[in-house]
């Protein structure tokens, strides 16, 4: 993290926002008073990350500073504050492994091990083919379906060592990826189906058919 790490990596020489992103920037800027453009720094950093292989190079921060008329250091401050901005290259899939207590109690250690063994890399590393990067994170707020991970924008829950490996394989080929619970659970419904408020569940049409079937 921070200035030390970022210096060692090779930085691209230039960065330009794509046409589509420039249009988006215009829309984003319209939300803020024209003398407070700096407010748009976070969405712009996000745009860079999406456009530029999931990470933010220095030149892009300079470009943002220029567009938003703010000092570069201020962009850098924001970018280093939030861990979701990657300041060095990451794999196509950034796998964030939650290892906080609830996930850990439900076996996150196995998930970490499964990933490490299957991909042949350690947490903090990127696989040789540039597909996967493993990082450890704190609670992502989906403890009900622990253990869970986040891959790029999506959550994958109810993991076991087996379905984790399966998931990795699917990600590799890009087919057949199921976002969310890997055991087919709906939302954060109890594993054995609703036990209370069944009538509400019915009203909300939460796959009552399935639940009924299970019963």
């Amino acid at each position: 993290m921070g200035s030390v790490a970022i210096k060692k990596i090779e930085q691209p020489k230039s960065f330009k926002f794509s046409k589509a992103n420039l249009d988006k920037i215009e829309k984003i800027l319209a939300k803020y008073p024209s003398n407070q453009k700096a407010s748009a720094v976070m969405p712009l950093l996000d745009l860079v990350q999406r456009q530029h292989q999931n990470w933010i190079p220095e030149v892009a921060m300079e470009e943002i500073a220029r567009i938003l008329e703010m000092p570069r250091i201020k962009v850098f401050e924001v970018a280093t504050f939030y861990t979701m901005y990657n300041l060095k290259p990451v794999g196509e899939y950034l796998i964030q492994l939650c290892t906080t207590t609830p996930c850990w109690l439900c076996g996150s250690a196995d998930i970490v091990k499964a990933c490490e063994d299957h991909l042949g890399i350690k947490v903090g590393e990127t696989s040789k083919d540039g597909k996967f990067t493993l990082v450890e994170v704190e609670c992502l707020g989906a403890c009900v379906n622990a253990p869970m991970i986040q891959v790029n924008d999506d959550y994958y829950e109810d993991l076991t060592a087996e379905n984790m490996i399966e998931l990795l394989e699917h990600l590799k080929t890009g087919d057949d990826i199921t976002v969310g619970s890997q055991t087919g659970r709906t939302g954060s419904c109890a594993e054995a189906g609703p036990t209370t408020l069944e009538s509400h569940a019915k009203k909300a049409k939460i796959k009552m058919a399935e639940i009924e079937e299970d019963k």
């Binding site: 200035s3 030390v4 970022i6 250091i73 850098f76 504050f81």
Partner: peptide, 26 residues
């Protein structure tokens, strides 16, 4: 730096336990 000297090169980087005062990429 910001208010008197007009140098906007110093800033507060990272956060929490890792927070530090630094300059734009060294």
């Amino acid at each position: 730096g910001e208010e008197v000297a007009g140098i906007e090169e110093l800033g507060v980087l990272n956060r929490g336990e890792h927070l530090e005062i630094g300059t734009y990429v060294e």
